[in-house]
Write a protein that binds this DNA or RNA. Structure first.
Length: 294
DNA sequence: GTCATTTGACCAAA
DNA sequence: TTTGGTCAAATGAC
């Protein structure tokens, strides 16, 4: 970051300050400020949540803009957890290419010629001690035991691969048992409109790039990063907080994850978590080993 | 009925 | 030939 041009650095600082301020506002709203807030219960939540959600969106936008700036003005992000790289022949900052396939080629059973191994260069990689959602709707399409790995590798594609031609995929592999450590590798960029992350920010052209920018560095470096949690159709919601996975049955009309930013302040302190439509009591906390252990 | 996951098979890169 | 990524039928949940 030291090498940022002054205008770029200024813009980054502004974005970070903005994000911090909005996060502070959000914290004030969510923090149990007084008894009056508490005993009003549900009505207060109903009033507060939409505003809180709006603030979170602003925080996310600000932070993703920051990451955009970082990637625009720097060849690398100095972080050992998130490794933005470039797909072979495709800059990470350009919008996604159109899907290679045509509609007619999608008809059905192509058991030949469709197993091309992807480029060995991922778009993003990250290691995380917690399993984080990333703001996109993923559909698992396979799992495999790989060489030199103790655990299954899980393969996910964007849910909108077929309806919007989104070619983004990711692989999640548990690499360590205790403490749990997961390696997530992203390939390609989202060109779908599955996420609130695509809500147009000030610079609309960045949306494609931002689609993967939400893999923030660790929270130690970005203490004001925020978190919403996901809801999944047909599956108990998994929220991992401090090495725990919290399962909640969240009805959801769409297989749509909100975002995954790891919130710095302690959610368990408030006993609730936020989605776009509801807050859910944390009443069950358990460690889960089942998803990636097969 | 619809949609997501599971899982064995297929296929191409290494 | 081995390994890894993807397909698609079977299955299950809602």
């Amino acid at each position: 970051m030291e090498n940022q041009p002054s205008n770029g650095r200024k813009a980054i600082e502004e974005e970070l300050i903005k994000g911090r301020d909005i996060a502070n506002q959000l914290l004030e709203i969510l923090a149990p400020k007084s008894n009056t807030t508490q005993h009003k219960g549900v009505e207060v939540e109903a009033l507060v949540l939409p505003f809180a959600e709006d603030l979170v969106r602003k925080v996310l936008r600000s932070l993703t803009n920051t990451l955009l700036l970082l990637n625009t003005h720097s060849d690398h992000v100095s972080d050992e957890v998130v490794l933005p790289v470039t797909i072979k022949g495709v800059s990470s900052s350009v919008k996604c290419q159109k899907p290679e396939y045509k509609d007619e080629s999608f008809n059905a059973k192509r058991r030949s010629g469709s197993y091309k191994r992807k480029s060995s260069a991922p778009t993003w990689e990250k290691n995380s001690s917690i399993l984080m959602e990333d703001g996109y709707a993923w559909r698992k399409y396979g799992q495999k035991m790989t060489m030199n790995a103790k655990y299954l590798r899980n393969y996910y594609r964007c849910t909108h691969k077929y309806d919007q031609g989104c070619l983004a995929t990711k692989q999640v592999q548990r690499i360590q048992e205790d403490p749990p450590l997961y390696h997530t590798t992203y390939y390609g960029h989202h060109n779908c409109k599955s996420s609130l992350m695509l809500e147009p920010a000030s610079s609309s052209d960045s949306s494609m790039f931002l689609s993967f920018s939400n893999t923030f560095p660790n929270k130690a470096e970005y203490p004001f990063s925020s978190s919403l949690y996901s809801s999944m159709k047909q599956e108990p919601m998994e929220v991992i907080h401090e090495d725990h996975i919290v399962h909640n049955q969240l009805p959801s009309s769409d297989y749509h994850m909100l975002c995954d930013y790891d919130l710095d302040f302690n959610y368990s302190r408030y006993g609730t978590m936020l989605s776009s439509t509801e807050s859910v009591q944390f009443d069950e906390v358990c460690r889960s080993d089942q998803e990636f252990d097969g």
